[in-house]
Design a protein around this nucleic acid. Structure first.
Ligand code: MN
Ligand code: MN
Ligand code: ZN
Ligand code: ZN
Lengths: 137, 137
DNA sequence: ATACCAGTTTATAATGATTCTAAAGTATTT
DNA sequence: AAATACTTTAGAATCATTATAAACTGGTAT
């Protein structure tokens, strides 16, 4: 669990001013060994409960997009009404339960490497994401 | 190329009344050997140009969701501001160019079968979708 | 310390895709 | 033809996200 001075350092190194809002969001997102998935509204609730503080919605959006751009978060490709983010920035895939709206990590060992045999002239592959939709049986 | 009476038949068999709006949308979507990907606004434009007709936006949404429910269309899982649909309802994967907002089919032979080695108790797999994001090189 | 500036936060408005509403229209059944 | 259930429609509502622009703050120079 990193304390405030360490996030301050991390933010500065990224060229982001260490404001109290950004530090608080770092604590909520990164003060845990386990990575997790969240939407903006999940995060707003987490800030209110876990941190007992209020950060304006615009700042939450701004910060999450800044962190995403710096590579501290990943956006997950699912066609849902809300965007999902992931504090696990390694290459990995997901189960998605559309009813419960829950994402579950598939570690690399859980999925054989996906080999793409087709190429598009002038285009390069940026990412390969596998989404496994699941449902109660 | 199916003519109107054949869509009428197809719609009736599906329990959908063959209205002139639904028949028109069938023609725009299915009167071609090639399958394709589209958003609702793409489709509205296609109806206006290809069919030189106007169908209310609510009806276009209603019809597309009815067709999707009947299995004549598939919704594609990408995190875009608009939902993408596919007239190719076979199991297949996609390239997605986020800049050009273009989807390209990956046929089954283009991707090795994706083997998922993890199971979630009480859950069954509904679909496995691979999304390959590409970019100009 | 004080002043300054660029970057940041904030409340609020705007946007845009999608869904809802309820009235008018239409296909099918009786 | 009349009755009925289904469908279309314009317009309003919803809701996640982005834009705006004024107030605020961290860092730096004086
Ligand atoms: Mn983003
Ligand atoms: Mn749908
Ligand atoms: Zn994940
Ligand atoms: Zn396709």
């Amino acid at each position: 669990m990193l304390s405030s001075p360490e996030y301050i350092e991390k933010l500065r190194k990224s060229g982001l001013r260490p404001t109290k809002q950004r530090i608080k969001i770092c604590q909520v997102l990164f003060d845990t060994k386990k990575t997790f998935h969240f939407t903006i509204s999940d995060l707003v609730k987490l800030i209110e409960t876990k941190a007992n503080e209020k950060i304006s919605l615009a700042t939450v959006y701004n910060t999450i997009h800044a962190f995403e751009k710096k590579g501290y978060l990943k956006e997950i490709s699912i066609n849902s009404s809300q965007t999902y983010f992931d504090t696990n920035t390694t290459n990995h895939h997901h189960f998605f339960d559309e009813k419960q709206k829950e994402l579950i990590d598939l570690e690399d060992i859980d999925v054989d490497p996906v080999k793409i045999k087709k190429t598009i002239p002038g285009k390069k592959i940026k990412s390969v994401e596998v989404l496994v939709k699941i449902d109660s049986e």
